[in-house]
């Protein structure tokens, strides 16, 4: 600005007035651009929100009905001071679970969240638990950054996933512990129904999945099992 003024003394105007006008123009431009962008964003947000929520719901639903086979309906619950409350407004990861019901509205089991440190980053999973069978009945990975071709087999390898079709998780309510802890064995060494056959070459990822399910069962079964009857009643 000052350069221009110096180079052309004929159009020199009072400096103060010039600067004030400049500032006004700057503020005006920036605020109108900001207002415009704000309106645009709000408009788009309002328009896309239902679609995004539908997508989220479909994603959760798909995961829940994968881990509890036969499920067609579900209801979200949250753990809260020894009680379970339906449709929790806000529940942290691992503090929420889904009760799953079949075609005939019968209670099939619950889908629970679990997470643990994997080889690369935290692995988050959803697994199904059937109180009736006292078994883990399914598992799917919600989030993982495990090595492609190796650790990511925890979600892709059908042989590994078969571990979770009927993983023994009998609970001894007297001692408040699992009868047998869920353990991970070396590849091809699974003997007992509470063991998980590790993926060859991805022992760390496999062990992480086993450990998180074990820990989640140990924490959640004591506060879930007393409410199973209530869950059976409260069909959606």
């Amino acid at each position: 600005m000052s350069e221009q003024a110096q180079s052309n003394p004929l159009v020199r105007r009072p400096v103060a007035e010039n600067a004030a006008a400049e500032t006004r123009k700057m503020i005006l431009t920036l605020s109108s651009v900001a207002a415009l962008s704000g309106m645009l964003i709000v408009g788009v947000y309002q328009y896309t929100l239902p679609y995004i929520e539908a997508n989220r719901e479909a994603m959760i639903e798909k995961a829940v009905f994968t881990v509890v086979p036969g499920g067609v309906q579900k209801r979200a619950y949250g753990f809260s001071d020894g009680a379970v409350i339906p449709d929790p407004a806000s529940a942290g990861f691992g503090e929420r679970f889904y009760a799953v019901y079949g075609e005939d509205r019968s209670f099939l089991g619950t889908a629970l969240e679990a997470s643990a440190q994997g080889y690369q980053d935290t692995i988050r999973i959803l697994y199904g638990y059937s109180p009736e069978k006292a078994c883990v009945v399914g598992m799917t990975v919600l989030e993982s950054k495990e090595t492609p071709g190796l650790g990511d087999k925890i979600d892709l390898d059908p042989v590994f996933k078969a571990n979770f079709k009927a993983l023994d998780a009998a609970f001894d309510s007297a001692s408040g512990k699992l009868v047998h802890e869920v353990t991970v064995t070396g590849h091809g060494k699974k003997i007992n129904p509470w063991e998980i056959d590790a993926i060859s070459g991805a022992t760390i990822s496999s062990k992480a999945v086993g450990a998180m399910i074990n820990r989640s069962l140990q924490t959640n079964l004591p506060r879930l099992l007393p409410h199973v009857d209530a869950l059976k009643e409260n069909t959606p």
């Binding site: 400049e22 700057m26 920036l30 651009v33 900001a34 962008s37 896309t48 679609y51 995004i52 997508n55």
Partner: peptide
């Protein structure tokens, strides 16, 4: 656009459209 604040203005404009695209993509495929 005054030349002194042009970069700031561009960034606001770009950020707006990025947010729009972000929402649009979430609506299309999570």
């Amino acid at each position: 656009i005054p030349k002194q604040v042009r970069i700031a203005t561009y960034i606001v404009i770009i950020a707006t459209f990025v947010t729009v695209v972000d929402y649009a993509l979430q609506a299309i495929s999570l």
